[in-house]
Structures are given as C-alpha cells and as structure tokens.
C-alpha cells in the first residue's frame, strides 16, 4: 500500500471526545489509518463503536476533533469552513442509510442539488442529473417524487446524487441498512462498479456478507480499530467471497 505516493486519507491518533469531565467519553479513541486511492473499505463493528462518528469526521461534517486528519495531503484543521464545504461539494459523495433525499424536490432535482453548490447553471445541472439517473436505470422516474419510489430505487437515486459531482471519495453509511437483500445486492453491485472505475469507497455496514465486495475490511471496537484486513481482491476475489459468505451463514445458524 505504501508504494502509492499520496494516500487519500491519513488519520493520525484521531480522537473525538463527547462530554466533559465525568461524562467524558471518546467516541473515537486514537485511530491511525491510511487510505489509499481506489480502495473499497468496509468498516464493521457493533453499534456505538464510533463508525458513524468516523464517517462524519471523514466527510468533514465534524471538525471538532483531536489528532490529525489529512485529506489529499492537506491538514483539514487548517481549512476554513468555506473551503471544507467546497471539498464536500467536489470530492466527497455521501450515501446515507436513510437515503436522505429532500422530499419536497423531485428525483431529478435531488440529483442535481450538489451541482447547485458547485455553481453549475440550471440547464446543465438537469442535463447532468438526467445522464446520471440514466446510468442507474432510473431515467423514466426523473420527475417522480422520492416517496413514490421503492427503497432500492430511492437509494439508487441517492447514489446518483452522491456521484453527480464526480467525487473521488464516496462515504456510504450503511447504504443497504434499510433495504432487502435483493435491493442490497443491486446497490452493492453499483458500488462495486464505482470501485472498479477507480473511486475510493468507504462503507460502514452491519452486514458481514457485504464485506465480500470490499478490498479491505476494518472492524472497530470502542472507538479503536480492532482488526484491519487487507483483502487483495485481484488475487482472492473468488475465494474471499465464499468463505466470508459461509461464515455469515454459519453464524446465523
């Protein structure tokens, strides 16, 4: 991994504190992590281990942190609020568990929304959003309202929205958490495609089966990294899928 010149994300002794004094609690308690370009990372762990907090920090939504976070070689702490918003707009795409589409806006307006903050003129915004929706086979649903779509479709819209700015990093917080297994599979295939196109994907999941798509699996426990497994996909893609899948089944039984 270290042969790649600039890692996308470098975390050094990252800590996130909640509360003060007696109630002090570290949601993230000293994480060192280096993420290279083009990795597909699955982060797993029990509830409350700080996965979502970590995602928020990586997505520059939470800047009250201790330790160092370098994004593309730049220390995030030195960036202004405005600059951070710009990075969110151009480099980071968010996918949420609860989809988070704006219910007042139609599908195409939702997808075009991130382009607004990049200063793209309206006609181009809609054109680009339409193209993006076509990639996800949702073109005929363009003018539907979010509530008229199924869960899987909604999440595909959300992914289209996350991708419309062509971000280099995609942060997915339990993207399949609200979906059935079939829809989950479709979403994961989409993410996998993105990964093959060279995007860096960081995904939080509860479902061990989904880690088969990832190139690296990190498990967290109590705000610390518990295990960090590099799954070298090129070599063992076929094998890893099965054993992990089996493991999952066993644990279920």
């Amino acid at each position: 991994m270290s042969d790649t010149p600039t890692p996308v994300i470098v975390l050094k002794d990252l800590r996130k504190r909640f509360g003060l004094g007696d109630t002090e609690h570290f949601a993230i308690d000293g994480i060192d992590l280096t993420i290279e370009k083009g990795e597909f990372i699955a982060i797993m762990g029990p509830s409350g281990c700080g996965k979502t907090t970590l995602m928020n920090i990586l997505g520059l939504l939470d800047s009250a942190i201790e330790g160092e976070y370098e994004l593309d070689g730049k220390n995030v702490a030195s960036l202004s609020q405005r600059r951070q918003a710009m990075i969110r707009s151009r480099q980071i795409g968010f996918i949420f568990q609860s989809f988070n589409l704006i219910s007042r806006l139609s599908v195409i307006e939702n997808v075009a929304l991130p382009l607004t903050y990049k200063g793209v003129p309206k006609l181009q915004r809609l054109k680009k959003a339409s193209e993006m929706l076509a990639n996800f086979h949702l073109q005929e649903r363009e003018y539907y309202m979010p509530r008229q779509l199924s869960g899987g479709q909604t999440q595909r819209v959300a992914i289209a929205r996350a991708l419309v700015n062509e971000p280099s990093i995609i942060l997915a917080d339990e993207p399949t958490g609200n979906l059935d297994s079939r829809a989950s599979h479709i979403i994961m295939e989409e993410l996998s495609d993105l990964h093959h196109k060279g995007n860096t994907i960081i995904m939080v999941t509860h479902n061990p089966r989904l880690t088969t798509y990832a190139s690296r699996v990190i498990t967290m426990l109590d705000g610390k990294i518990d295990t960090d497994t590099n799954v070298l996909k090129e070599e063992t893609a076929a094998e890893t899928k099965k054993p992990l899948g089996k493991k999952k089944k066993k644990s279920k039984e």
């Binding site: 405005r82 918003a85 707009s89 151009r90 968010f94 007042r104 991130p114 903050y117």
Partner: peptide, 16 residues
Amino acid sequence: TREIGIRRALGASSRD
C-alpha cells in the same frame, strides 16, 4: 433541519 443537514453534507456552505 434535516434538509439543511443534507444540503450541508452535499457541499452547501453556511453562506449558501
């Protein structure tokens, strides 16, 4: 509020 959160996450600055 939630919409504001979404917009912020999608790259809206506080000025936006």
